[in-house]
């Protein structure tokens, strides 16, 4: 039973939360809203997974780095963890990009000030 994949995902989630914590992006900005967004995102993507499994598109692999534990047919225990990571990564990227974009006008006005 391999735990490499599961550990990698948990490590990735940890890194996303560290970024979140450091820059006050998501959970550390509005915990309640972040919890709702995360829950909605994970459930939406999980439902998508289940639809794909039901249609016979997605097939679980026999990779040795996975635990092989299933929470539903063809749905390994790592999948919701992966989706959690994907949602966190998406939101950290978005909120981080917003932070950068929101700074641009400020910088421009600073430059104008210097030119004057």
């Amino acid at each position: 039973m391999g735990v490499l994949y599961l550990l990698s995902l948990l490590l990735g989630i940890g890194c996303m939360l560290l970024l979140d914590h450091r820059f006050r992006l998501f959970f550390w900005r509005d915990a309640k809203a972040a919890a709702i967004v995360t829950a909605v995102g994970v459930l939406f993507l999980l439902f998508w997974d289940l639809a794909g499994i039901g249609l016979g598109i997605f097939l679980r692999g026999e990779g040795t780095i996975a635990t092989g534990l299933l929470i539903a047919p063809e749905l390994p225990i790592e999948e919701p963890i992966f989706l959690l990571f994907l949602v966190l990564c998406t939101m950290v990227l978005y909120t981080g990009s917003r932070r950068l974009l929101d700074r641009i006008p400020a910088k421009r006005s600073e430059k104008q000030w210097e030119n004057v």
Partner: peptide, 21 residues
């Protein structure tokens, strides 16, 4: 399609939820 759907919908939800704040 997974990241596309996520990145189109979830930031919108986030913005809507945090608008009052």
């Amino acid at each position: 399609a997974y990241p596309l759907a996520g990145v189109v919908a979830l930031p919108g939800l986030w913005m809507w939820l945090t608008r009052k704040r």
